[in-house]
Computed example of a mutant assay.
Amino acid sequence: MRDEGTDNRLGAYLRARRELVTPEQAGIPPGRNRRVPGLRREEVALLAGISPDYYLRLERGRDRNPSPQVLESLARVLRLDDVERTYLLDLAAPRPKAPRRRRPEQVPPRAHQLLAHLQIPAFVEGRAFDVLASNAMAVALSPRLRPGRNRLRSFFLDPEERAFHHDWEKAAAGFVAALRTTIGDDVDDPRFVELVGELALSSQRFRTLWARHDVRALDGGTTTVHHPVVGDLRLHRDKLPLDDLILVVYYPDKGDDSDEKLRLLAALSPAGPGVTAPDTTARTTDKP
């Protein structure tokens, strides 16, 4: 991640977001022969009520302590939502001098017991979307949810993921934005550096989305997936905190077509719906 300017994350974010706002969105006549995507620096400065020179210093990292008032004005001009606005404010906040040491990601024993009792697809993931534990229903839904796999790596490098997601492009954008939110200010964390570096080298789509600097809330939602055996499934996805990890569950509306298909999938699963897949404490490099 060093090549995107980890020492000037505020400037990189401002530049990326500026390029995504069209002149029409900002109320500026588009004109002709515009050489930059989105807004020019001087246009952002004018709309935010600051000098062009000061905005240039912000983008180039020469001034890293803008006031909250300036940041709020920039958030308005750049059309940031609440999550993006909070991210912008955090970028300008002082970073701790000493790097934080995180404990190794280990699934507590009670989580394995919980997974074994759940009759719906469920798994535990770490901060970098490593699958640390899963139940048989999760593996029956997607073999990429086995412990030891990395969901982000599978998503961009495994061709079967494109067929699995009905709207792969939308899901891809949300996944990368969630990764950037998860990273926060841990830009030097070796696991994140390794993962982002590998995906940036291997996937053009990941590189494009990563350059947008999108962020999004780490919440659930509803998705439609295509299972090769039972067909389309419309599933709700919830993410529940589990110490420093996340428990992810997928479930359908009670009594609808997807509910019936999920029951069929459980019946077809050789291990049965409640058997916990073996946990791997050490991360493995999954191969598509």
Rank of each mutant, 00 (worst) to 15 (best):
M1S: 13
D3G: 07
E4Q: 15
T6E: 01
T6R: 15
N8W: 12
N8T: 10
R9E: 06
R9P: 11
A12T: 11
A12N: 07
R15T: 13
L20W: 09
T22E: 03
T22D: 02
P23Y: 08
E24N: 13
E24C: 10
I28H: 07
I28V: 06
R35C: 00
V36P: 08
P37S: 02
P37K: 12
R41K: 09
R41T: 01
E42A: 13
A48N: 04
G49Y: 05
G49L: 03
I50T: 07
S51T: 09
P52Y: 10
P52C: 04
Y55Q: 05
Y55I: 04
L56N: 09
L58V: 10
L58H: 08
E59Q: 14
R60N: 14
G61S: 11
G61K: 11
D63C: 15
S67W: 09
S67T: 04
L71N: 05
S73A: 15
V77Y: 04
V77W: 03
R79C: 10
L80R: 11
D81S: 15
V83H: 13
E84N: 14
R85L: 09
L88F: 15
A92V: 08
P94F: 07
P94G: 09
R95K: 14
K97T: 06
R100M: 09
R100I: 14
R100G: 00
R103S: 15
Q106P: 05
P108Y: 01
A111I: 03
L114G: 00
L115W: 03
L118P: 00
I120G: 00
I120K: 01
P121W: 02
E125Y: 00
G126K: 11
G126N: 08
F129C: 10
V131M: 00
L132M: 07
L132Y: 01
N135C: 03
N135S: 05
A136S: 15
M137K: 04
A140E: 00
L141M: 15
L141H: 12
P143Q: 13
P143K: 14
N150D: 07
R151L: 14
S154W: 09
S154H: 12
F156D: 05
E160W: 13
A163T: 12
F164M: 11
W168N: 11
W168C: 10
E169M: 10
A171L: 07
A172Q: 08
G174M: 06
V176Q: 06
V176K: 11
A177T: 02
T181M: 13
D186L: 14
V187H: 15
E198D: 12
L199M: 07
L199R: 06
S202T: 01
Q204C: 06
Q204R: 14
F206I: 05
R207E: 05
T208Q: 15
D214V: 10
D214G: 13
G220S: 06
G221I: 03
T222I: 13
T223Q: 14
T224H: 05
V230P: 04
L233C: 09
R234E: 04
R237V: 08
K239M: 07
L240D: 02
L242E: 01
D244E: 12
I246K: 09
I246L: 02
V249D: 01
Y250P: 11
Y251I: 02
Y251E: 00
G255W: 05
A266L: 00
L268D: 00
S269T: 10
A271W: 07
A271S: 12
A271M: 10
A271V: 00
G272V: 00
P273Q: 02
D279T: 15
T280I: 10
T281Y: 03
A282P: 03
D286N: 12
P288L: 07
P288G: 11
P288V: 10
